[in-house]
Structures are given as C-alpha cells and as structure tokens.
Amino acid sequence: MYGNLSVIDAQPNMPSEEEDPKLLAEFEARIDRGEKIEPHDWMPREYRRQLIRMIEQHAHSEIIGALPEGTWITRAPGFKRKMALMAKVQDEVGHGQLLYSAAETLGKSREAMINDLLSGKSKYSNVFNYPALTWGDTAVIAWLIDAGAIVNQVANSKGSYGPYCRALERICQEESFHLKYGYDNVVTLATGTETQRAMVQEALNRWWQPIMHFHGPPDTVSVHTEKLVRWKVKMATNDEMRQEFLDGYVPKIWELGLTVPDPNLHKNPETGLWEFTEPDWEEFKRVINGDGPCNKERLAVRRMAEEEGRWVREALKRPSQKYVAPLA
C-alpha cells in the first residue's frame, strides 16, 4: 500500500544541463518510445535520485503498513478472517522485500534505506500514522486504502524504470485480492448486526480524512513535477488519482448504505468531477513531519524489531562475502 507520492523532494532539482546532452537526449528518446530503463543503463542523476526516494518510500510504507493491520491478526474473528489477514499482511511485507530489491538496483542498500527510515530521514505513507482502533478499521483499510494504493500503483506500473514496473505489476495483482478481501469484510459488517454496522461506519468516519489525504495535496499546491512526468517517474497527478479513486469507490460506499462524513461530496454532472470539502492539509503536513497519532509508535516498533534482530543478522554475515545488488 502506498500513497503521498506527491511528497517529492522539495530541494531544487539537479539541473539537467549538468548531464551530457547527448546521453540525456538518447535517454529521453527511449522513454518517449516507451522503452524501459534497466539498472545498468545510463540515466540522469536526478532520475536515479528521485526513483530511489520514491521506491524506498514505497517499500517503507509496506513494512510500516504491516503494523496497524498486523495488530489485528491475533484478534481476527474466525478462521476465514484470521487466515486472510495473515496472508494479506504477509503480502505487504513481501511487497516491502520486492521494493527494497528494486530500489537496491539503483545503488542504495536495504540496510541504508532502513537506517534512513529509522532515523526519520526517509518518509512513508502518512495513513499508517493513524491507529486501527477496531476490527472495522481493518476492514476499511483493506478495502479503501488498498484501493487508493491500486490507483496509484497501476499508474506507476506504466512508468519507465523496469525493475519498479515489474515489482508493481506483481504487487497490483496481490493488492487486488486485498481489495476483494477488504470489500467482503466491509460488506459483511455493513450488512450485519447493528453493532457491526456502527463499527464499520465509525471506522469509515475516522479514515475518511486520511483517505482524502492519501494521494497528496491538490495539484495547485504540489511541487513542480514536469520533468518527472516527462521521465515517466510520476504517471498521474494527485488530483487525477483522487478523482479516479472517488469515482470508483464513493458509489460503492453509498450502495452499502454507508455515509461519507463530508456533506459537500458530490459529482458535478457538468464537469464530471467530484467536489468535496478539502481535508485539513495542515494536519497532513504535521503528520508527515512526525506529529501524527502513531508516528512515534510505528518507528519505535520498527527500531525495536531492528535492535532485537541484530544478532541474527550479524550471525549471517560472512567476512568473505561482499555486498551484491540484487538482479532486477
């Protein structure tokens, strides 16, 4: 699961003029022809840097994303749900593994990426800084957060970097099962007892703002991404992805008799676009910068796992072996 792609490095981009103009022109021509860039191909430094950031953030989101749902594996009601949730969260960790490997092909080791996660230098998707308070939250996460992620990931799987695209194709297939699981779970609660119905409605109310934050700030205030679009690093704008998500899922939410906590949410028949109350973008910024309800807890859990597991990793090391980047 992943979102907030818009949180692109705010530092000024490295000017392309510093790159060899001939190589840059060839590179851009390849992208225009729809070719994939592979790890050992020439690429602009800025392309490499942005991709590492993006894939790394995506990988972190998967392993941090395993935590809020992971805490419900031990409480899942009944065999079917327990089995499915175990498999789902396992998939998320597996996605992390795939993505770290994809990012490693660009020259940054998994260890370095995890260190940057733990030090707070590297970000992950904001939604995982919110707690999953009830079983209803896990249903809403599995359905709607995964749905938001699919919108994002399907778009990115058509990008230009081969290893990332291939990882995303596989991830999207698995995510589509998560979405089915999440939907089935939401339907069961929404059509169940009064308590179950209240549980899922309350969860939806809690998660609506993080869901609206998921694809990042509106295009009007997002950082300039023209070059990343040209290089097929960024494949859709935040607003485009949010519209696609709303179009696909708001009708399904309503169909279940659930409500969305935004009285202004409606589709404008003339523009064909969804209109809504802007979520609190100040809160989004605050949470991204570390001040969300669960930021500290999430990183503390990751740090504990890293510390506790250190002796195992040390015991696997061989002085004679050198680091080898994985094959893409």
């Binding site: 392993i63 395993a66 935590l67 992971g70 594996i73 031990t74 065999f79 327990k82 089995m83 175990m86 498999a87 969260v89 396992q90 960790v93 597996g94 992390g96 593994q97 770290y100 859990v301 504990m304 796992a305 506790e308 597991g309 250190r310 002796w311 195992v312 990793r313 696997l316």
Partner: peptide, 28 residues
C-alpha cells in the same frame, strides 16, 4: 503469526507467516 512485521529480517517475517498459515489450515 505474531512475528509478522517484527522478524529479524523480512524474509523471516514472511516465512513465519507462511508456516503460521499452514498450521492454521491444519487446525481447521
């Protein structure tokens, strides 16, 4: 299954989860 997300390396999270899923299936 409690190892999910907490293993010493990601590959072990995944392995313990697979084993847990098998065991749950056997108990069922």
């Amino acid at each position: 299954s409690e190892w999910t997300g907490l293993g010493p390396i990601m590959e072990e999270d995944i392995a313990f989860s697979s084993i847990a899923q098998d065991k749950l299936g056997h108990s069922l």
